[in-house]
Design a protein around this nucleic acid. Sequence first.
DNA 1: ACCTGAACACCGTTCAAGT
DNA 2: ACCTGAACACCGTTCAAGT
Lengths: 191, 191
Amino acid sequence: VRLSREDWVTAGLTALGSGGPGAVMVEPIAASLQATKGSFYWHFRDRAELLTAALERWEQLATQSVIEHLEPIADPRMRLRALLSIAFRDEDELRLEGVVLASGHDPVVAEFVERVTATRTAFLSRVFVDLGLPSGEAKVRGRIAYATYVGHVQLGLTDSGDQPSRASIKRVIDEMISIFAPDGAAARRKR
Amino acid sequence: VRLSREDWVTAGLTALGSGGPGAVMVEPIAASLQATKGSFYWHFRDRAELLTAALERWEQLATQSVIEHLEPIADPRMRLRALLSIAFRDEDELRLEGVVLASGHDPVVAEFVERVTATRTAFLSRVFVDLGLPSGEAKVRGRIAYATYVGHVQLGLTDSGDQPSRASIKRVIDEMISIFAPDGAAARRKR
DNA sequence: ACCTGAACACCGTTCAAGT
DNA sequence: ACCTGAACACCGTTCAAGT
């Protein structure tokens, strides 16, 4: 059975999601694909190259597609709500996201996390600008909101088994919107 | 030169802070202490036992001491501000914290992260109860506020080098307090 | 072009032997 | 009680040799 480079990348991404960059190991992955390590080294220069290829795929899925889907929503509060409902989807789907965001200390991963962070905080700042905040304040709030998201994904990774109910997710989303994008009257009072 | 168990734990904690659980490696640490791996295995059953011991020390430093220091502050908004100024101290000091919080996918680490998470979210929920929120809402908000902290520490880990200025830290803290614990008038308007 | 198999280095773990 | 040194298994990397 002949393997393509993409087959290895897919297996690499699976390993990345289950145990972080350290779990992207040549020999175990080769064994899971029923090939030898020698075969791996025909497709890739080294372990880092596989990790990089897997992260490229993740970056595509994690930013481009999401943002292209949300960009058209004109009303900023609705755009934020749509974003949150993606962010709070099923915990299992967030595993890969959480593991990658948590691996910034790995130099290979760091480059990707930095780029994704910049894209996403810019997107969130835009929401707050559209809600009427001055650009400096919108930037700070965009960063804080993104930190909240990152932390949430992180916490979901260790939450012992119990999947949150649909109702409790809605409650958290409502609370987050009332915290970060309170209605006009309350917002005006603060200035 | 004879080594104590504590010497190994100290070295293990340093390794943990610089590269995560995967960096807590027997042979390199032995080399750094100018001892052999055999010596290590007299003090510890295996690698996991060293990691556990290092995490125990971290847990002590990271929760007990901080909370004991803040508990006596009666005014909840001041308590929150004091907590934030600890949370936003120098990035270098937060490295270990960030690396540990980010390693929840490691089963040895997970147990510690879960316990610390429970302690800290309970502490934060208490702040919001003392601010007058009903307990359900205080719990949700405590969790969101802690997620924000976790995300912030995470983002600090990959922020390319540039230490934030004292002024920009104050700005973020002010913004967080106005978001999570708005003044009485604004809070009343929301209900 | 794509893969195997053997080789070597590095790290985790064990253990007999030393002080 | 505390440590060394050699042994073995596992994984990353290289490379000559096979199809």
